[in-house]
Amino acid sequence: MDISPESLLDMHERMVRIRTFEEEAGKLMEAGKVPGALHLYVGEEAVAAGIMVHLSNDDQITSTHRGHGHLVAKGGDLGRMFAELFGRATGYCKGKGGSMHISDLDLGMLGANGIVGAGPPIAIGAAFSNKYRGTTNVTCCFFGDGASNEGTFHEAANMAALYRLPVVFVCENNGYGEFTSQERHQAIHDVADRAPGYGMPGIVVDGMDAIAVYEAAGEAIARARRGEGPSLLECKTYRFLDHVGVRGMGVVYRTDDEVVEWRRRDPIVLLEERLAGAGLLPAEEAAAVRERVLGQVKAAIAYAESSPHPDPSALLQDVYTLATDAPR
């Protein structure tokens, strides 16, 4: 698959934007400035970026509880995201949803989700709509190794294959379902092994290598656009920070050595080395990207901090849709 210099640099910037957003969000959470829990995406950036550069706003994604990276990579507004984390009225959910409920329908981001495994049925609904309306739009469904044990995943995979829906199931296998290691929650190691059982191809790709994800995602998405049905793309990745927040909740479930080992394969460093080797992004230009993105993130935080809290009168708004407002 061809990959243009523009796509490579675009992918790099999306990854840096995710990393910077998450690191700053983590600091704010640790400082007690963010109400609620954050599940940070640091370490998994190559997956979101490698997928999202193939998608337009007409293509949908469903996300997870670890969803900031997906929305940032899809072009989410950083100010509105931070405002939501801070519980401000300018946030994506008017400050009433928090980290795990952010969505942006204009970008085709159908929502983060606090329920593990809730995304797949939503994704195939969108994919069914794409097909029914005769579009070439594709839905990418992000989920984890833990979610692949949920009934929702299995039902969605079955229906997607049955109706040959234009959906790509993107398993972000970071080796842990919350605090439970994969070998303690499923008897298989490759979630991709489950795909043939539903009648779709499944492949494994190095989720720390953005170019590898880009190539594999490009093929899976193109296949779906051509009407050839769903596929499962398992990206082997790792969360550098804890399940929740930065330092986590003190639960002992993995070793420091393991974290150090995975950090040696930092996806951003890996991509920057490749781009520098190809003469596309010298070190000083990479530093400039980081600097520029940090400025954007700081500005977004300032916007969020200066935004008002929602008025108490808004508490019951947007809870139910009135029947008369429902689309017909």
Partner: peptide, 10 residues
């Protein structure tokens, strides 16, 4: 364990 799972399935 990794053999037989690459992109050539797509």
């Amino acid at each position: 364990p990794a053999s037989g799972k690459d992109i050539r399935r797509l």
